[in-house]
C-alpha cells in the first residue's frame, strides 16, 4: 500500500541534500489536497545536472526544494516547456544572469557579457535537452511523454505561467557562478 504525505516541509518530505533527489518510501506526496508524483520530478533534476555538466562543464548542487505559489521567476531568463502523457505538466528552468552568462560562455568557448538573443536561444536549447533527457529516463520506468517546443522569457521579475494546472515544486541549484531554479508543475492525479 502506498503512503502519502501532507506537506513538503515536515519530516515526511525527505530531501537528500547531497544529490538533491527526493527519496522516500512513497512515489507520491500530497500538497493542499493535490498529489504529486516524485518519480516524474526526479528525472528532470537528473537531466538538468547532466545537460549542464556535458554541455557547459558546470557542476550544480541541488538545494532544498519548496512549494512555489507564485509565477514570478527567481532568475533573469527562463526556459519553459510543456509535456503531455500519462499526466500533463510544465517545466521551467530559470537562471540568474551571472549563471547563464557563464554557462553559455562555456558552451561556446567565448565570453558573453549580457543577456542577448544568443543567450535566450541557448536557454531554449538547454530546456529542450533537459526535456528530452528527462523523458528518456521516464520512459525507462514505463512513463512515456511527448515534449513541446520550448519558449524563453526574460527580464527582471518576469512571470512564467504554467501551461498546465497543478502544484508547482521548485528545486534551487547553486553553481560556482550563480544560481538557477528548476520548477516542475504537474497536473494533479485524481
Amino acid at each position: 500500500m502506498k503512503r502519502t504525505y501532507r506537506t513538503l516541509n515536515d519530516c515526511e518530505m525527505q530531501h537528500n541534500a547531497e544529490v538533491g533527489l527526493f527519496t522516500r518510501p512513497s512515489n507520491f506526496i500530497i500538497m493542499e489536497g493535490q498529489t504529486l508524483d516524485v518519480k516524474i520530478i526526479n528525472p528532470f533534476i537528473n537531466a538538468t545536472l547532466n545537460v549542464l555538466e556535458t554541455m557547459a562543464f558546470i557542476k550544480s548542487d541541488a538545494q532544498k526544494p519548496y512549494l512555489k505559489k507564485d509565477n514570478v521567476a527567481k532568475g533573469d531568463v527562463s526556459g519553459v516547456v510543456g509535456f503531455t502523457g500519462e499526466t500533463n505538466g510544465t517545466v521551467f528552468i530559470t537562471f540568474d544572469e551571472s549563471c547563464i552568462l557563464k554557462i553559455v560562455s562555456n558552451m561556446f568557448g567565448e565570453q558573453i557579457n549580457e543577456i542577448n538573443d544568443e543567450i535566450k536561444d541557448a536557454v531554449g536549447e538547454l530546456t529542450n535537452m533537459i526535456s528530452g533527457q528527462a523523458r528518456k529516463e521516464l520512459e525507462e520506468i514505463g512513463k512515456v511523454f511527448q515534449g513541446a517546443i520550448p519558449s524563453v522569457v526574460s527580464g527582471k521579475n518576469h512571470e512564467i505561467k504554467p501551461l498546465t494546472k497543478g502544484p508547482k515544486i521548485a528545486i534551487p541549484f547553486k553553481t560556482d557562478f550563480g544560481n538557477f531554479t528548476v520548477e516542475v508543475s504537474l497536473e494533479s492525479k485524481s
Binding site: V51, T54, G132, R135, E139, G147
Partner: peptide, 26 residues
C-alpha cells in the same frame, strides 16, 4: 536530437537514418 525515446530511434532507423546522436553530447 534530444528525442531519445525508443519509438523515435526506431522510427528514424526505419526511415533510413545513418546514425543517431542524442543531445546533450560531447
Amino acid at each position: 536530437t534530444a528525442e531519445a525515446q525508443k519509438d523515435n530511434i526506431v522510427e528514424a532507423v526505419k526511415a533510413g537514418v545513418t546514425n543517431y546522436v542524442v543531445k546533450p553530447f560531447t
